[in-house]
Design a protein around this nucleic acid. Structure first.
Lengths: 230, 230
DNA sequence: TCAAAAGTGTTTGGGTTACACCCATGG
DNA sequence: CCATGGGTGTAACCCAAACACTTTTGA
């Protein structure tokens, strides 16, 4: 077609390419603590160690990176729905990263998911899937690869988002009380927030709207107005 | 060695891997404007179009991603020194990204460099290397690939850093006046800053220290104290 | 009537903007 | 002596923290 002397390079290019994977830092809030989902590795390298769930990028299956991350999530967690709010965090790669290959590259994604709504069970190549305290995992020297550091970064990035009121709406039920929202943010940040200023910041930004007539009557106290994303 | 039935995967793994590249968003300030360095492509695809300088990840040459970015910078710009302040921005990848391969992945880096200190000249596969207004490049529909969008992101990320007084020290001369620093920040942000509050913010953060006895006598006005990174 | 959580208002203080003003120098 | 950029001080303002207070419910 082209008169250009430079022809199309074959699908398998001249230079060998890195072993490319997706890793997922999936976080949630359980019992008022930020937690991260780790899988126990059922194969080498790092057999038996806990690691972020991940998988190989499949150029035959994935149309782009985000789709690859969703596919890996579905396979490893044995779920059918997309992971909400899944965002790319960073790429890490080096010669010595993974003994399975001369050069390994991982694209790391992170998300915050509602723990009730998904029912992760260990997919292929995982012995077990378990929630760990995110803070403890970030400091755990025994995790596979450099995953402790990646968890640390995922926690910090998520906390920054919450500080800026970039709220995890996909994480919350469609309607929720302001108290529930505040507790959720406090769990992620690991510190208490002031009710009054939290609410003022929320309505200045016009992020929420009340669900007309809907209240939550939880117990021996005043019922709370339900809100939803505007 | 291992009793594990799962053996080491060969260097060239079972699944074909994506064509993996590094792209560089190299910015600077010229005549009070934020600019970005683009190369005119000397080969397909996008022959003749302007694009971010970039190159293929070489697993035989690069020990990790950051090193790969430095190597690509040296080759494309024909320089010998490392690019200062070079930071990873994001990874983009998809099936249709690059016609040379069935699946292409790019790891994009960004930096801000002092325009005087480096003397970029077009390396292999580039016809010409030129500085463009960053704002105009970010809006230019005729750039190769999705590079306009990447430039947009690089500009925004850099502006956020400056807002937070994460200053481009590698960009500045070792000693500089506060006026020069302020002008530089104004150029990057594209808006004027208040002198008084700019200085107050600087010394609250204790980022700078005066260079004892050193002043800049520039013209028909009071000489300015020189400062350096603390 | 009491505990508990919802919801509101008011004070205080940190930090930034806006702007006025003096300082030092070469022409 | 004046134009110019360096350098300093102050009042106004915005935003959020802290905290006290009222409201509404079930037990």
């Amino acid at each position: 077609m082209s008169t250009n002397k430079l022809e199309r390079i074959p699908a398998n290019p001249i230079h060998p390419m890195p072993f490319t994977r997706i890793e997922l830092a999936i976080m949630s809030v359980i019992d008022g603590r930020l937690v991260v989902l780790l899988g126990k590795r059922a194969r080498a390298p790092h057999l038996g160690k806990w690691a972020l769930p991940g998988g190989v990028l499949r150029i035959d299956k994935d149309i782009h990176l985000d789709a690859a991350a969703q596919r890996v999530g579905k396979e490893r967690l044995e779920i059918t729905a997309d992971l909400p709010h899944l965002r790319q965090m960073k790429a890490v790669g080096s010669k010595s990263r993974d003994s399975r290959s001369a050069w390994a590259l991982s694209i790391v994604y992170r998300t915050l998911i509602p723990v009730g709504q998904f029912d992760p069970s260990p997919g292929k190549r995982l012995e077990e899937l378990k929630w760990f305290s995110a803070d403890e995992a970030a400091a755990d020297k025994k995790l596979a690869f450099d995953h402790a550091g990646l968890i640390q970064m995922a926690v910090e990035t998520t906390q920054n988002e919450i500080e800026n009121l970039d709220l995890p709406f996909d994480f919350l039920p469609v309607a929720f009380t302001l108290g529930e929202l505040q507790s959720c943010c406090e769990a992620i940040l690991g510190r208490r927030l002031d009710k009054s200023s939290f609410r003022r910041r929320l309505d200045e930004r016009e992020l929420l709207e009340p669900v007309q007539g809907e209240m939550r009557t939880g117990g021996a106290f005043r019922p709370a107005q339900l809100y939803q994303k505007r």
